[in-house]
């Protein structure tokens, strides 16, 4: 892990578990991650990889039966887990914002979008005048500004509209506008385009990229789509069964994946250029996260496994900027 100085978000040894009837589910098991100022980090994983739970933990949004068992979460050097709920709420919304996959359920159907943006501004924006008409005017102006920024035409008018009066792509934009209302330093976008069509997906992703450069904020893009990551992210982190398995600069990881899971994922993507060639899926499925044996989590599905993999595997450095959780990294085992 490179120097800890200057990271906007720094998570070490995060362990989040869910207590279920069947036993303790280790949804996030020892995740380390850094987000640097101004960068876009892609977080890739399938269902059950723990990618969403990791950031729900960062945001302090894990609720019973889930709990954070251990780990530190530092934002600009402050330990978020040590903060009171009130202080945490101030950081959340003001400095870290999150958008959800499903904008229709994430927005309040009973309030106009104007009310929802203003609510955030009143709660968090300290630059607003403190009282009176000036405050209302300034907040309103800001709301219009944000909606215009995310590409909502005639924003002044649209403040009075309800969420259901917008299309899916528009709602995702509105949620981004609300998230950005207070110019956060970090935007966590959880599957922002999964529910959207490709042409709309491109619009939303371009928008996030554009705003990132304009506002100079950091973005975490949680997705299952390696294509999206390769196009929009500086660095990528691959999660599998609650652990980080590979991490590094996007071009390097995608061009030369080192963990067998990352390799398998890339081979699993169907492409026009692969027509006629047999597709090579990763066989099997994600292991049950209850009572996992202390071995490589990918063992049962791995086509490069050896007996030595039946022990706990630590992250290993590959050069200065890359890491992967595989015992055979040093060997040249490229199929």
């Amino acid at each position: 892990m490179s120097g800890t100085m200057g990271n906007l978000l720094e998570v070490r040894g995060l362990r989040t578990v869910f207590d279920t009837r069947a036993g303790e589910v280790r949804a996030v098991d020892g995740v380390d991650l850094d987000v640097r100022p101004g960068e876009c980090l892609g977080v890739v994983g399938e269902s059950g990889s723990g990618k969403s739970v990791t950031f729900a933990s960062v945001m302090g949004l894990v609720r019973s039966p889930g709990r954070i068992e251990e780990g530190t979460i530092r934002f600009e050097g402050r330990d978020l887990r040590a903060l009171s709920p009130k202080e945490l709420r101030r950081i959340r919304g003001r400095h870290i914002a999150m958008t959800m996959q499903d904008a229709l359920t994430a927005l309040n159907p009973a309030l106009t979008i104007g009310e929802q943006i203003l609510e955030v501004l009143y709660a968090h924006d300290e630059t607003l005048p403190s009282v009176g008409r000036a405050r209302t005017e300034a907040a309103r102006k800001k709301a219009v500004e944000m909606l215009t920024l995310v590409g909502i035409p005639s924003a002044d008018d649209r403040l009075r509209y309800y969420p259901h009066e917008f299309s899916g792509g528009m709602r995702q934009r509105i949620m981004i506008a609300i998230a950005l209302a207070c110019r956060p330093k970090l935007l966590i976008a959880d599957e922002p385009t999964t529910a959207l069509d490709v042409t709309i997906q491109a619009q939303v992703l371009e928008l996030i990229a554009d705003i990132r450069t304009r506002l100079g904020m950091s973005v975490v893009l949680i997705t299952h789509d390696l294509g999206v990551v390769s196009e929009y992210c500086d660095r990528v982190m691959v999660l599998y069964a609650g652990q980080v398995v590979e991490e590094g600069p996007t071009a390097a990881v995608i061009g030369d994946p080192r963990h067998p899971y990352t390799k398998g994922l890339l081979r699993s993507i169907p492409r026009l250029s692969l027509r006629g060639q047999p597709i090579e899926p990763i066989e099997g499925q994600v292991p049950d996260l209850i009572g996992l044996p202390p071995q490589c989590r990918f063992y049962s599905r791995c086509n490069e496994r050896i007996d030595a993999c039946l022990q706990p595997i630590a992250m290993r450095e590959i050069g200065a900027a890359r890491r992967a959780r595989c015992i055979r990294l040093e060997e040249e085992t490229r199929p």
């Binding site: 992703l205 789509d225 390696l226 294509g227 390769s230 196009e231 890339l266």
Partner: peptide, 23 residues
Amino acid sequence: LLSAVPDVDSPGLRKRVKLTGDL
């Protein structure tokens, strides 16, 4: 439609034909 699909093989190489608005 084709230009909107992010591609692992050639990120950022394609010229994007942008569509405005919704269906």
